[in-house]
Design a protein around this nucleic acid. Structure first.
Lengths: 179, 179
DNA sequence: TTGACAACTTACTAACTAGTAAGTAAAATT
DNA sequence: AATTTTACTTACTAGTTAGTAAGTTGTCAA
C-alpha cells in the first residue's frame, strides 16, 4: 500500500502496474492479487487509508489545538512535503486528472476524499476569519475550493517549472489572506 | 490531432491508444503511425498546435485590444469551455499529473506551453494593476501562478465535485481581484 | 504512358497488462 | 497430532499496447 500510494502520486493510476510493486517487493504479481483481487481494490484501500489518516490528524490535538494560521501552515506543509518527496503530486489531483479512465469505486473514493479535505479547509478558514486573524471576501467554501485547487495545480506545475513556483503560489496565498 | 487533443484532455497520455483514434476515424493503427511515427510525436504535435493557437489568439486584436478585466474574463472562459465540453481538463494539468511517465520531448513541450500561458497571464495582471482596474498584493508572476494553478486544479476538482465548484473558484478569483 | 509519391492496409511482433487456477509450505487453530 | 488457514509461487490466459515491414491503391506530374 505504501508503494501503491507512492506510484499513484508519481505516475497515476494508469501509469503503474502490479508488476512494478511486485518486483520492488521481491514477490510475484499473484501475491498482490491475493491481498487486493483487482487494481481498483488496491487503489481504493490506499485512498481509504489516506482518508482515515487525515481524519486522525485533524482530530488529534497536535493539529486541532493549533491557531487557524498554524492550521493553514500545517495544511500547506503537507503539500510542501509531497513536493519535496521526489515531486509527488496530491492523490486527488492525480486521480481526477484521469478521472474518466479509472474504475467507478475509485471515483467515489476520490470524491469522498476531496469533500473531506475541502470541508476541513472551509471550517478552518471560517474559524480564522471569525477570529479576525485571516482575511478574505466571500464564502469560506469558495475560498477553500480556490486554495485547494491551487495547491493541487501548483504541485503539478512544479513538475514542469520547478519547486520555486510551488513556493511562490503558497506565499501568494498567505499574502492574499493577510488581514 | 483533434481526437488526440480530446483524448489527452479526457483520459491523459497513458489513457488513450492509437487504436482509440483509429477506430473512431475508421482507419487502421498503421495509418496514424504513418503520420506520427511514435505516440510522442502525435502528442508533441498537439501541444505545438495549441501553443501556436494561443499565440495567435493573444496577438489577435480581438483579444489584444480588450481591457485587462475583459482579457481575464476571456482567459477564464477558455477553461469554462473546457469544463462544458464533457468535463475536459486543461492539457497542462493532464500532462503534468503524469509528468513522470511521459516521454522527454513531451515534457519539454509541456513546460514551454505552461511558461507561455503563465507569461501572458502575468503581463495581463500587471497591466490591470498598473491601470488601477485590478487589485492584488505581491508580484504579478506569483499571482499569475496562483490563478493558473487554481483553474488547472479546479477543472480536475469539478470532475469529482461538479461544475458548480469550478464556477465558485472563478467567482472567488474575481472577488479577490476587485479593487 | 510512365513513374513517383502519398496515404494508406494487411499482417505481424514483442512487450506488457490485469487477472486466474492450481499447487505448496509454514503457521495457527482445534 | 490432525486440520485448517494464510500467504504465497508457478504457470498460465486473453487482451491491449506501441511500433514495424511489406504490399496496395489512387493521384498527379513529366
Amino acid at each position: 500500500m505504501n508503494l501503491a500510494e507512492s506510484l499513484l502520486q508519481d505516475k497515476g493510476f494508469n501509469g503503474f502496474s502490479y508488476a512494478h510493486i511486485a518486483s520492488e517487493l521481491g514477490v510475484k504479481n499473484a501475491a498482490i492479487h491475493y491481498h487486493f483481487p483487482a487494481k481498483e481494490d488496491l487503489a481504493c484501500a490506499v485512498i481509504q487509508r489516506y482518508r482515515d489518516r487525515f481524519k486522525l490528524w485533524t482530530n488529534n490535538s497536535r493539529v486541532k489545538d493549533l491557531s487557524p494560521e498554524e492550521k493553514l501552515n500545517w495544511f500547506f506543509s503537507i503539500y510542501s512535503d509531497f513536493r519535496a518527496d521526489n515531486g509527488k503530486v496530491c492523490l486527488v489531483g492525480s486521480l481526477e486528472a484521469e478521472y474518466n479512465s479509472i474504475p467507478e469505486q475509485l471515483q467515489k473514493q476520490t470524491e469522498a476524499m476531496h469533500r473531506e479535505l475541502l470541508a476541513w479547509l472551509q471550517v478552518t478558514l471560517k474559524e480564522g476569519r471569525d477570529a479576525g486573524v485571516i482575511n478574505f471576501n466571500g464564502e469560506p467554501a469558495n475560498k477553500a475550493a480556490l486554495i485547494l485547487s491551487s495547491v493541487q495545480g501548483a504541485l503539478q506545475m512544479a513538475r514542469a517549472l520547478g519547486t520555486k513556483k510551488f513556493r511562490d503560489v503558497v506565499e501568494q496565498h498567505k499574502l492574499d489572506l493577510v488581514v
